[in-house]
Amino acid sequence: MTTVVSAKELSLTFETNDGPVQALSEVSLDINKGEFVSFIGPSGCGKTTFLRVIADLEQPTGGAISINGKTPAEARQNRDYGYVFQAAALLPWRTVERNVALPLEIMGLSTAEQQHRISRTLEMVNLTGFEQKYPWQLSGGMQQRASIARALAFDADLLLMDEPFGALDEIVRDHLNAQLLELWAKTEKTIAFVTHSIPEAVYLSTKIVVMSPRPGRVTDIIDSPLPRERPLDIRETPEFLEVAHRVREGLRAGHSYADE
């Protein structure tokens, strides 16, 4: 198995006006090729920070991390990953099609190649027919799908997703989770996915990383026994509930909710 992301005793301390805040404390973790890894934990546990370190949007203050054997900065310059943010962050003056084209324009692809990739990725997220719509003409779920299409458009093997469905209602979220699994099976990408929903983490992941706050650290890493093929009603099975229970135990062991 090829290791895509490898973190060793990774630490990050933010200097704030109220003194230093330790966001990550000695996090050691490997993400292998083709895995779907979820990061779960309460606010302040460092799950988003860890994703941002992989993306070279934050600089660690201790330890080591490599992405495909490179530093995060090299990986970013090489466009090794696509990043999906909490908000869709579509540019309001661009149509869906032009938003998906944004990274392709920056990479300097030919118009024909851009067009090819736009139609292919919009089809993957079921947005064919919405090419000419502006973001404000789409629902929240559609906007987030467009932003996923944008992250897929330049064909990076690693997809970093930071609570992409956090702002959506439960029904839309279930639907998008199922679509995401399909997409993952089809594209064989490696996905790192931040969430604070236990069912979402268990349903999606092959590996669940449970984190706890103050300082942000890993309390448990669970390899999911669930098959890769997952219909939505797998969430009623004893195996699913068992994994969910272990996640909940892991969260409790981290005393994550004790002082909230």
């Binding site: 993306a55 990043y83 920056i106």
Partner: peptide, 15 residues
């Protein structure tokens, strides 16, 4: 978030 997005694409200042 939009500036972060541009950073993940390794966009230069002009872009």
């Amino acid at each position: 978030i939009q500036l972060d997005l541009m950073a993940t694409y390794n966009a230069n200042d002009w872009q």
